[in-house]
């Protein structure tokens, strides 16, 4: 299943990529594959922008804007007047 703006903010700088394959390993939606020791974004539309790849890229080759894909958290932040502060606060 795909959602609005899936993978929109994901940027991979192949020049920095060292081919370690961590991004492919940590991605739960098979967004990456490694071809000739370089990562490629193979399935951008499946990306939920969780940031696991960015977090685990030792070369700093990945940029992606992350956050909770949760309407309840976003509405909660709006009510607090804190547009950027949406976080999981189920309680």
């Amino acid at each position: 299943m795909q959602y609005l703006l899936s993978g929109d903010s994901l940027v991979l700088d192949q020049a920095l990529c060292n081919g370690c394959g961590r991004c492919e390993e940590v991605c739960p939606h098979a967004v990456y594959s490694v071809v000739n020791r370089k990562a490629v974004v193979a399935n951008r539309g499946n990306c939920m922008q969780c940031g696991a790849c960015r977090m685990n890229c030792p070369a700093g080759a990945i940029a992606v804007s992350t956050g909770v894909g949760c309407a309840a958290a976003i509405i909660g932040a709006m009510r607090r007047g804190d547009g950027g502060g949406a976080s999981c606060d189920c309680a």
């Binding site: 894909g69 949760c70 309407a71």
Partner: peptide, 24 residues
């Protein structure tokens, strides 16, 4: 239905923010 975005495994922040702004 909109609240269920937070229970799924494939939504993202920018998309959910867009949905809230348009649908609420």
């Amino acid at each position: 239905g909109m609240m269920f975005t937070g229970s799924t495994t494939f939504t993202n922040f920018a998309g959910a923010r867009l949905e809230v702004r348009r649908a609420l």
